[in-house]
Amino acid sequence: MSGHIGKTSRTLIVVPAFNEEGNIRRTINELKGLGRSFDILVVDDGSTDRTAELVKGEDMDLVSLPFNLGIGGAVQAGFQYAARYGYDVVVQFDGDGQHDGRFLAALLNPIAQGDADLVVGSRFLEHLGYQSSFLRQIGIRFFSFLISFLIGLKVTDPTSGFRAYNKKCFSLFAENYPIDFPEPESIMIVHRYGLRVKEVPVKMRGRQQGRSSIRYLKTLYYMVKVSFAMCLDLMKQRGRIS
């Protein structure tokens, strides 16, 4: 149910959106079309276009951040919301229309069965749908190799933002989550806290409208920053969840 305070379901779908006026309505309709066994929260990350306005028109739960925090900050606001209202599971579902809602069940299964604390939807396990550009694939493979080299964990799609988190995992991230380019680093954090990561095959689509926030020089910054943060994470103390 939308437009409420508190939960009506055990699962919250967090949709981070920044300047997604061209995609957000389609994303919301897709999620609504899947049935109402979960709550949906759109986190508008300080958009300067009509994203928030369109979401309000859909009578949807909306958290509007006063300024742009970056994808990590927006998702973390969703985690905080979930922790505040006592949800059991959070699904991250990007507002740019790249994620396919039909794979939600596959993403939630390992959490429901208690096999994983974080489930990552991978487009490379069965090579379904849009496989990203050649340059991006190189970057993804690099991070995949780096994670495997640093912590011995095989993750084929570490940059995927199509993810499910159980309570233990999102409560941890509600307190501590990388603000910019968080996905690969968050896998390191999960591993550091002794939580389990699992990948499931999902299908992704190409971006329908608008442009990705990671372009040009930012790509280089992204690669360096994330690699550096991942290496530094190794030096941090092994955490424990109380």
Binding site: V43, V63, S64, F67, L69, A77, Q80, Y81, I179
Partner: peptide, 14 residues
Amino acid sequence: NDRIAQQLGILEHE
């Protein structure tokens, strides 16, 4: 600032 922005967003929703 980030934490305040997040909390502000949630409170505004409430």
